[in-house]
Nucleic acid binder design. Sequence first.
DNA 1: TGTAATATTGTACAAATACGCAAAGAAAGA
DNA 2: TCTTTCTTTGCGTATTTGTACAATATTACA
Lengths: 112, 112
Amino acid sequence: MTVDMARFEKRAEIIKAMGNAARLVIVEDLQNNEKTVGALTELVDLDISTVSRHLLILRHAGIVSCRKNGNRVLYRLRTPCVLNFFDCVERILNSDDDLKDTCSDDSCTNCI
Amino acid sequence: MTVDMARFEKRAEIIKAMGNAARLVIVEDLQNNEKTVGALTELVDLDISTVSRHLLILRHAGIVSCRKNGNRVLYRLRTPCVLNFFDCVERILNSDDDLKDTCSDDSCTNCI
DNA sequence: TGTAATATTGTACAAATACGCAAAGAAAGA
DNA sequence: TCTTTCTTTGCGTATTTGTACAATATTACA
């Protein structure tokens, strides 16, 4: 193993932050406006404490940032490039499902 | 909550498959050639059974595919677009760390 | 046919994650 | 100041994940 594992751990940390349905909903929604925790909570239908923790994870990953405004905390998308992930993800989702589960031998025409 | 959660769960599943350092190493390495489980095992310094399971996860996510060749199983990158993730991830890693951990009030110039 | 090489699967376990409820903090307004 | 609103944090719990070792295929080769 001659790989710089630390680097890949850091990368994984960021991608992991995107690897959750609720957080994806939040990220995609923040694409339009900054929003309060309460507003995001309505969106994903979880306890507000859970949403607050999801936002913390996204913040630590460097994906969102926030600012206080009086009572409220407004979250915004800090690095919109994460939205680019979706292109590839959709491409994968639309690709032929059959090919995902089979690992066939050389003679099998299923192989890509 | 008016969001199509199922869709986001599926997206998250794919991104989650990328959210692990060992699997990232594997994916990046497969960019060049298809490789056997054994070869990938040397790369990441884990038990071969663990690597086999990582590959299963990547396969179920539609990210890699494989073919048998005699004794061996050769894995290849099925959807190279996942490599695009790295651009954005690197951008985030290189962005100012200070901004990631603070959620300051309006008057704070740290806010982006 | 028997042995070695390659990969996957069964099992167990520790660590991490996601979650809600309750409590605590912080700001606004009566 | 007291109360309300908004957010975060403490805590307990259930689930998922990452891992290695042992056992089981599967194929190649002597």
